[in-house]
């Protein structure tokens, strides 16, 4: 299982940031060729990111590159330059529908080396049209590993004003989470853009987790710790999940049909959730700690 609690953007034409991208402990780093790079420097950033992918130590962070969207005419060159450098995934901006994914996937397949494991796709949904197509995008190609939400462009597309409270994006968030869940992939939330507002960030992370997001994009390394704290399973969740797993195995041994934990019925989706929590807890080494608190 790939954990993507935090996905940290690193500007693609900034050598200092590129070489330090691995030190912040983000689950994923997103080396950005799109918004962070001015139109005149696209060629320079592409080479810089390609060389960084080959040589920079990103420690345990998943390596993702955000390429330029299909309407820019840069996508094919980006893919040809980046995919052979073995990123783990590409983040495709402004995905409008499944055809975009299929086009990109074909280009990626052509650019991959003979023994290269397939590079995954994370689709960034940031238009009303893309949101309407979210499930079809999520299921357009087996490479699609997650849907991510970009609220700034999306809100502009709606003709709404982006607010800190975010009522204007509540429906979109829920819709996106649902589409991802239906396709059995992860949903990643939009970044919290006010990097000075720690309390606002913590509240926004809590809301995203509550809505079903599995992680959050981030535009500032300082946010990573808070995002991890927010998306890591809590002690309460771990204890609950272990009870569920124990109840299931006990039921199997005894051949009982109906299973309940704390007076509530357990069925497949609940078991799935419990298993995910346990897996995350194991990855993060949190299991023992849960019982100390």
């Amino acid at each position: 299982m790939t954990m993507r609690r935090s996905m940290l953007f690193i500007p693609g034409n900034n050598p200092g940031m590129l070489q330090n991208g691995g030190v912040f402990g983000a689950d994923s780093v997103i080396l950005d060729l799109e918004d962070a790079v001015s139109p005149l420097e696209k060629d320079a950033a592409r080479r810089l990111v390609a060389h960084a992918l080959r040589t920079v130590n990103y420690a345990n962070s998943e390596k993702v590159v955000r390429i330029n969207s299909l309407d820019t005419g840069l996508t094919e060159d980006d893919i040809k330059a980046i995919v052979p450098c073995r990123p783990d995934a590409l983040l495709i901006p402004k995905v409008q529908g499944p055809a975009d994914i299929q086009k990109v996937a074909a280009l990626m397949a052509a650019a991959e080396g003979p023994e290269q494991p397939p590079v995954q796709i994370i689709a960034l949904i940031e238009t009303p049209r893309g949101l309407a197509e979210a499930y079809n995008i999520a299921t357009a190609d087996p490479r699609v590993a997650a849907l991510a939400f970009g609220a700034e462009d999306y809100t502009a597309g709606l003709g709404a004003t982006r607010t800190k409270e975010g009522q204007e994006i509540l429906t979109a968030r829920c819709w996106l989470v649902n589409a991802a869940a239906a396709a059995e992939i992860d949903a990643i939330d939009t970044p919290y853009t006010d990097t000075a507002d720690e309390e606002g960030l913590i509240a926004d992370i809590a809301l995203a987790k509550q809505l079903g997001f599995k992680g959050k994009l981030s535009i500032n390394p300082r946010q990573v710790e808070h995002i991890h704290a927010g998306f890591s399973p809590s002690a309460k969740e771990i204890i609950w999940a272990e009870k569920v797993i124990q109840a299931i195995s006990l039921a199997k041994e005894q051949g009982t049909g109906v299973i309940a934990v704390d007076g509530k019925m357990i069925d497949a989706p609940i078991v799935n959730r419990a298993e995910r929590i346990i897996m995350l807890a194991q990855l993060l080494g949190l299991q023992k700690e849960a019982y100390h608190d």
Partner: peptide, 9 residues
């Protein structure tokens, strides 16, 4: 500076 903040943390 994010790297210095990381060190400080």
């Amino acid at each position: 500076d994010p790297v210095q903040l990381k060190i400080a943390s």
